[in-house]
């Protein structure tokens, strides 16, 4: 298309927006609502995923040592453990160190620990495994070897729980894909019907254009542009609303000092936002394309 044809296309796009504004508001709102739902899922999914990754990275086995073990023996125990196969390193945490850590973690509620007569926490050895993402069998083998060490009273690790949680994340991921698919299909359907209504309102104009020798591109382009604008506007609005809601949520969370820290919850990354906006535009575009394809065939 040359400059004249593009000029006419833009003029007709503007005219389309003015002619049936309620249809465009409906299409844009559909994109906004769909992306709000998709965006909330995406934020939740991204944060849960980050959490799992962090837990996997920080995965440690903790061996609780019998109380009253002299510090020198503690150091020798660390040496013994470090020499075991499949273990990268180990750190001895004394009773006092454990208590001071707990106080730090409890921050505002640390006064609760003031009344303790005796330190109830046992000394321990924090063990880092050689593999960052070991499987269940490897972990069990190492734990068995650790339990055989006489100075060790008990061994704890969060692997089994982590595996169960990973199962939940897989399910959550699947639900996100299925839910996202349903949202996508619904939005495409609504956008497609909006365009169909616009085409119906414009059928006289479209018939005339065909007769006077307008190409398909010249006829269709205003509708593609219209849907591009609706998709872009709808998705940018949705991202804006999500960001506003995220801001309010994290502010409230920070004010209430809950166990869930506001600083740990992140908003969508630039790529995720771009993906969401791209998804919104794609939904609107595809809806338009399906209707126009049907129109061209007829």
């Amino acid at each position: 298309m040359n400059r004249t044809e593009w000029g006419s296309v833009f003029k007709r796009t503007k005219r389309n927006f003015r002619a049936v504004p309620h249809l465009h508001v409906a299409a844009t709102s559909t994109v906004v609502f769909s992306l709000l739902i998709a965006g909330m899922f995406l934020i939740l999914y991204a944060n849960v995923n980050d959490l799992i990754d962090a837990w996997k990275r920080d995965f440690r086995v903790i061996a609780y040592v019998k109380k009253g073990l002299p510090p020198a023996e503690g150091e020798s125990l660390v040496k013994t453990i470090t020499e075991m196969e499949g273990i990268r390193g180990a750190v001895y945490v004394s009773e006092d160190q454990a208590l001071s850590r707990l106080k730090k973690q409890m921050k505002h509620r640390s006064s609760l620990l003031e009344g303790l007569v005796e330190n109830p926490l046992p000394p321990s050895v924090e063990i880092e495994l050689a593999r960052s993402d070991p499987d269940e069998v490897q972990v069990r083998e190492i734990v068995q070897r650790l339990r055989a060490v006489p100075e060790i009273e008990s061994v704890e690790y969060a692997r089994a729980w982590l595996h169960r949680f990973s199962g939940f994340v897989t399910f959550f991921r699947l639900a996100t894909v299925v839910g996202g698919g349903i949202i996508f299909a619904t939005t495409v359907f609504i956008c497609s019907n909006t365009i169909r209504l616009t085409l119906y309102a414009r059928r006289q104009e479209l018939e005339v254009m065909k007769i006077i020798g307008a190409t398909d591109g010249f006829i269709k382009m205003p509708y593609y542009l219209q849907n591009f604008v609706e998709g872009l506007l709808g998705s940018v609005l949705a991202v804006g609303i999500l960001y506003g809601a995220y801001g309010i949520f994290t502010t409230k969370l920070a004010a209430h000092h809950t166990l869930l820290s506001a600083g740990n919850i992140r908003f969508l990354s630039l790529w995720e936002m771009t993906g969401l906006i791209g998804g919104g535009i794609s939904m609107a575009w595809l809806g338009c394309h399906l209707s126009l394809r049907q129109f061209t065939k007829s």
């Binding site: 004249t4 254009m209 006077i212 020798g213 307008a214 010249f218």
Partner: peptide, 10 residues
């Protein structure tokens, strides 16, 4: 519109 659709000079 006929001339616009045919891409005549504006």
């Amino acid at each position: 519109l006929v001339l616009e659709a045919a891409g005549f000079d504006r």
